[in-house]
Simulated assay, not measured.
Amino acid sequence: MMNGLIPVMIGGALGAGCRYMIGQAAARHTLSAFPWATLGINIIGSFLMGLVIAWFARGEMSDHARLFLAVGLLGGFTTFSSFSMEFWMLFERGQSVQAAGYVLASTLGAIAACGLALTLIRQVAP
């Protein structure tokens, strides 16, 4: 267990740092209260997760690399806890249509992105 903890912790710190920097940059350049940064991060992170998992499933990645990338880096980067909080903020502000749209776009976009990545890897390197 401790053997895999270090790559998860390092990856998690890097992923969380990247997510924070992107969120800060988006906040400086966006006038909308809609959580565009988290939406984009969740979709991009899910796409990258599809790539990592496809490579790992092919036996082309060590378990430590998988722990670092999938559990640590991407786990720290894609935070659905922020997603949940932002949903409730929209809902409580009376923006229930936007809240529902946010849930649909986040979940369907992430699932589609991950599936696309898996399909791409399987097509490019069967």
Score class of each variant (00 low, 15 high):
Phe34Tyr: 15
Met2Glu: 12
Met49Glu: 02
Gly94Lys: 05
Gln95Leu: 14
Leu104Val: 13
Ala25Gly: 11
Leu31Asn: 10
Met1Ile: 09
Ile10Met: 09
Gly75Lys: 00
Met89Cys: 09
Leu104Asn: 11
Ile121Gln: 05
Ala57Val: 10
Met9Gln: 05
Gly15Ser: 08
Ala26Pro: 04
Leu48His: 01
Ser32Thr: 15
Ala100Cys: 12
Gly101Lys: 10
Cys18His: 02
Gly45Ile: 01
Leu120Cys: 12
Thr107Met: 08
Thr38Cys: 07
Val124Trp: 14
Gly101Ile: 04
Arg19Thr: 03
Val124Tyr: 09
Leu120Trp: 10
Phe87Trp: 12
Arg93Asp: 12
Ala37Gln: 04
Ala26Asp: 07
Tyr102Ala: 06
Thr78Ile: 08
Met89Thr: 11
Ser81Tyr: 02
Arg58Ile: 03
Leu48Cys: 09
Arg58Gly: 07
Phe68Trp: 03
Gly17Leu: 12
Met89Glu: 15
Glu60Ser: 12
Ile6His: 05
Leu69Trp: 09
Ala99Glu: 15
Val52His: 00
Arg19Asn: 06
Ser82Leu: 04
Gly11Gln: 00
Gly75Met: 05
Met85His: 14
Leu120Met: 14
Phe80Val: 00
Cys114Val: 09
Leu51Gly: 03
Asn3Ile: 12
Thr107Leu: 15
Thr78Ser: 13
Ala65Asp: 10
Ile10Val: 13
Leu120Phe: 09
Leu116Thr: 10
Ser106Leu: 03
Leu39Pro: 04
Met1Lys: 10
Ser46Asn: 06
Gly59Lys: 03
Val52Leu: 02
Trp88Leu: 15
Glu60Pro: 02
Met61Trp: 05
Phe91Glu: 11
His29Gln: 13
Arg19Cys: 04
Gly12Ala: 13
Ala100Tyr: 09
Phe91Ser: 12
Ser84Ala: 11
Gly11His: 01
Leu14His: 04
Gly72His: 03
Met1Ser: 13
Gly17Tyr: 04
Ile44Leu: 15
Met85Arg: 14
Val71Met: 03
Val71Arg: 02
Ser81Cys: 06
Phe47Gly: 00
Leu73Pro: 03
Ile53Asn: 10
Leu48Glu: 01
Ala100Thr: 14
Ile22Ala: 04
Met49Gly: 02
Leu120Val: 11
Arg93Glu: 14
Phe87Tyr: 14
Ile41Lys: 01
